[in-house]
Design a protein around this nucleic acid. Structure first.
Length: 279
DNA sequence: CGCCAGGCGGGAC
DNA sequence: GTCCCGCATGGC
């Protein structure tokens, strides 16, 4: 059994993995199991100790961004009673560092679907096109490469129940296969330029682009707006509903500052409490 | 059953 | 530029 001493750094494994930013982690009793890159990771938290029995410390530290000063970030976004409540409720949630292709493909599949449904679609996608590997915990599947998707028949991708998203995913996979340096190029761009570049992929609009910027490129200033965030910004911050995407995003950025994306995740994580009367 | 979901593309204007 | 609609599927 390996241990990472969190040494009083705020971290909540449960909030981090169940808040809806990632779709491939499974809870197995006290353990969480997921695949990061090529590796199976099994982790479990007990207070200030993060235990792991598969995977290596460097991967885990980097994936969960354990060396990021979360206290400082939370202090910087804690600017009103609404976000203060969300922070109190979800403290320790960290934005994980996702692989750019997995994040992009996942959020293309996530449009206009609910989270349990997204999890199923992506699981089907991985079991159909991902590379299987055996572990002492059973057979696991890596996230399919862009090449694997690009070289598959559209009808086989449709079998993963992606609906109209199938063609978007397939086309984006082909473009990325032809341009393997895409992520490095985007990482070097300014936020606005990177966003434009991402939105050139089919199936990627402002919301998906912002999620990819936030979750894969660590652009913590972007404020993705989905229907829940829209409701919260209406109900708790007085914005008219409906408001244009860019208006809400700009307002989030103005209210919360350089870590608006972190604020967004805390609000999203706490959405059921913040938007009463929905489940 | 009907309504909704981490929206987007395309067309109208 | 903004508004509006259709969309394929499943969760609740």
């Amino acid at each position: 059994m390996n241990r990472i001493d969190l040494s009083r750094r705020p971290f909540s494994l449960d909030h981090t993995l169940s808040c809806g930013q990632v779709f491939r982690w499974e809870r197995q009793g006290a353990w969480w199991q997921g695949i990061v890159g090529n590796d199976l990771i099994r982790v479990r938290q007990e207070g200030d100790i993060l235990m792991y029995e598969s995977g290596n410390e460097e991967t885990i530290r980097s994936y969960f961004q354990l060396d990021l000063d979360l206290d400082r970030i939370l202090q910087s976004i804690d600017r009103d009673p609404v976000i203060h409540g969300a922070i109190g409720h979800c403290r320790g949630l960290r934005i994980v560092r996702q692989d750019p292709w997995e994040c992009l493909a996942s959020y293309i599949c996530a449009t206009y679907a609910n989270i349990p449904g997204i999890i199923k679609k992506i699981q089907l996608l991985c079991e159909s096109f991902g590379e299987p590997f055996d572990t002492e915990y059973g057979t696991c599947y890596r996230f399919p490469s862009a090449e694997a998707i690009a070289s598959s028949e559209l009808c086989d991708i449709r079998d993963c129940r992606l609906g109209y998203r199938s063609e978007y995913l397939c086309e984006t996979a082909r473009r990325i296969t032809d341009d393997p340096a895409w992520a490095g190029r985007i990482a070097a761009l300014s936020c606005g330029e990177a966003r434009t570049e991402l939105m050139a992929f089919r199936g990627v609009g402002p919301k998906v682009a912002d999620c990819v910027l936030l979750f894969a490129f660590a652009r913590y200033e972007v404020f993705p707006v989905d229907v829940w965030i829209s409701r919260i910004m209406h109900g708790c911050y007085g914005l008219p509903i409906p408001s244009a995407y860019q208006r809400i995003a700009a307002e989030g950025r103005a209210i919360f500052g350089d870590y608006a994306g972190y604020a967004q995740e805390y609000l999203f994580c706490d959405r059921q409490r913040l938007v009463p009367g929905r489940s």
